[in-house]
Nucleic acid binder design. Structure first.
Lengths: 144, 144
DNA sequence: GTTCCTGCAAAAGCTTTGCAGAAGA
DNA sequence: TCTTCTGCAAAGCTTTTGCAGGAAC
């Protein structure tokens, strides 16, 4: 089910974030492209539609949406920030061969440790890395 | 138990990494300061002892040790790479108030998902964020 | 009309690269 | 002696900041 402009506008109004064409487009892209895009990918794609769009605006918007807790930043790799709108209980798997990031179901909420008694836990992230089946099939799994 | 120069030298020889004073010092620091230091912290500390040390060498050394799988890079935050020599089964908790990173015991090896049948899993990381007990006590937990 | 956003240019960080001299094996 | 490492300077990237004009409310 595709998320519409209208849904997103409502959501932004609820959070008291001023609506602008650029913001709606960035949010729409992240909402409908659940591939954990980088800033670069978002920019390249939207620049075709909105030639005046700047990367600054993409950064500003993403940061605003993070503050509003509408999206999450994924830091599975240190040289590229990625963004995800899906807040459900899942982990991220990054293929070290093709770079693609897969979601996988895992019951993160149930994770706990006796070492964290007294800690206020605000977020939990699970990151796996390895080689995906497609790359294994193509023989790209000899990373040692 | 403090890890000695001799232990580290052996380890490096086994991995066919050429020994140098700088490398041993960097490795010694990471081995004996299990606080997940940043490059900056390692550099600042060792620069006092070795005034000619450069950051390039710290980077080079850390990358060499990662390639040799002697240390791990932690990417819990996108603006700072951190390093950890402890390869045991544990997660990382970052306090959003004081920035300190705590280890906690958690049985990561047991984590699995039906979605990952056919995937070759090479590493698993669990990152939690929130507020640590010290900061809660000091009233620094009003992050909303 | 006020406030906030956009987008340019510049700056700020972090990390990597090229290379000449130095050190390890 | 031969290979590899060190450390400086410079470059490469990603992200943030300052600010004037423009858009949202």
């Amino acid at each position: 089910m595709k998320i519409t402009f209208r849904d997103l506008s409502k959501e932004l109004k609820n959070k008291n974030i001023r609506l602008s064409h650029q913001r709606l487009k960035v949010l729409e892209y992240v909402a409908n492209n659940r591939c954990h895009p980088t800033v670069e990918q978002i920019y390249i794609h939207l620049h075709k539609e909105i030639p005046t769009l700047s990367k600054t605006t993409v950064y500003n918007t993403l940061n605003a949406l993070i503050d509003a807790k509408m999206i999450k930043q994924i830091t599975i790799e240190d040289n590229e920030a990625r963004y995800d709108i899906n807040t459900e209980n899942h982990g991220h798997f990054k293929c070290e061969s093709c770079g693609f990031i897969y979601d996988f179901e895992i019951n993160i909420d149930s994770f706990d440790s006796k070492d964290l008694d007294g800690f206020k836990i605000l977020s939990k992230d699970v990151y796996f890395k390895g080689i995906c089946p497609k790359c294994i099939e193509q023989g790209n799994d000899n990373f040692n």
